[in-house]
């Protein structure tokens, strides 16, 4: 009788051996793999000495850190990226995010003159980093640092490196998340969700680039075409 498998016995044995070794290795190194997956998390490095403009983008305690930094360094400034147009802001339910952040920084003692707003123009909702790069390119005398949540570090660094470095190098500083310890992300549902989400975004970015974000839903148009109610029999 002819053998059913399409692989030779030697290939099968090598395959089984590789599979078992892989599973055993994963089980053995599960803990260090989870706790030290810093390739995505990035360093929680300190801010470089030559940074002159610090962009407050994300991460736990970013406002406190940024306020302390700018107060301790003369000739340095903080910057916020202009938030995309939002429906909540349009109807006065909430203020744009950059305005909320600005108020927090002012309450922490940062002076008005030390705050910059980076314009976003017509950039889509997920393209804050493009606004930062544009601004850094046109202000190349400044050395820019960006405070981001630890999970965003890798994607931010890679995104900032792809523009041909027409500006001074941007330093990305990862801060702990508001919801979980960076090396304990796998212990909470929020951490696992955030890690998986970032992994997917990073993977998407590596394979397909920025993508094309569609237009915002038009609630007024929707309401116009919604017929008035008809009661069911």
């Amino acid at each position: 009788m002819q053998a059913v498998s399409i692989f030779s016995r030697k290939t099968r044995r090598i395959g089984i051996f590789a599979l078992l070794t892989g599973v055993f290795g994963l089980l053995l190194f599960a803990r260090p793999l989870l706790t030290q997956s810093t390739w995505l998390l990035g360093d929680h490095g300190t801010i470089d000495e030559d940074v002159t403009v610090l962009i407050v983008a994300g991460g736990n305690e970013r406002f406190e850190l940024a306020a302390d930094w700018v107060k301790s360094r003369p000739n340095s400034r903080l910057a916020l990226v202009e938030a995309p147009p939002s429906r909540l802001a349009k109807y006065g339910v909430r203020r744009p995010k950059h305005e909320e952040s600005r108020e927090i920084l002012l309450q922490l003692g940062v002076s008005e003159s030390d705050l910059l707003l980076i314009p976003r123009g017509t950039l889509a909702v997920d393209l804050n980093h493009v606004a930062v790069v544009k601004w850094a390119t046109s202000n190349s005398a400044e050395r820019v640092g960006v405070l981001v949540e630890c999970l965003d570090v890798r994607r931010y660094i890679e995104q900032h490196l792809t523009d041909g470095a027409k500006h001074a190098p941007i330093q990305i500083i990862g801060l702990p998340s508001s919801h979980f310890e960076s090396d304990q992300w796998h212990r909470s549902t929020i951490g696992v969700k955030a890690f998986s989400r970032e992994l997917l975004r990073w993977g998407y970015w590596r394979i397909l680039g920025e993508g094309a974000t569609g237009p915002r839903w038009d609630e007024a148009e929707w309401l116009d075409v919604l017929p008035t109610a008809e009661r069911l029999p």
């Binding site: 997917l200 975004r201 993508g211 974000t213 569609g214």
Partner: peptide, 10 residues
Amino acid sequence: TWWHSPRGTE
């Protein structure tokens, strides 16, 4: 259009 952007894909 969900696959056009990382946001929709996610």
